[in-house]
Amino acid sequence: MFVAGPLVGDDRRVIPVLGYAILAAGLVLALWTGIQAARRRPTSEAQMIGAIVVEVALLVQVVIALVQLFGGHDVAEPVTFVAYSIGVLLALPLGFYLAREERTRWGSVCLCFTAVVVAVMMLRLLQLWQAPVG
């Protein structure tokens, strides 16, 4: 659904495009919740929905990546790649849960931190995906 005709089968481009979009979304969510924390406010409903949207995008991205990985795409460190793929899905649910429990600015800080974690892990995943196999 993300690729037009000419890109089908080119597994080096599908993941980076979606990956960078998720990376950017993670940073936006971090900035947004960070400002919320600076204003001494708990997360807003829109931010919680934002976290869910990013998480769903992550899930789609991880499924595509793992399907391609087991379908023959070579990465330099497959074990690390799979571990990061699973790990990156855990961060936002943690932040979401804490932001729901903690209806103060600290809940916003928690979601902000886990959004940063997503962005960093996404960057690492992109590096691992594109690193030369050797």
Binding site: R40, R41, L98, R103, T104, R105, W106, V109
Partner: peptide
């Protein structure tokens, strides 16, 4: 408007000290 409604609990200084602990838990 949403934030104002949600934010009321946040600006009080007498909130229970659970906040920093939850951030530490996340970290």
């Amino acid at each position: 408007v949403n934030e104002d409604r949600d934010g009321r609990a946040a600006d009080a200084d007498d909130a229970p000290p659970t906040g920093p602990r939850r951030l530490l838990i996340a970290l």
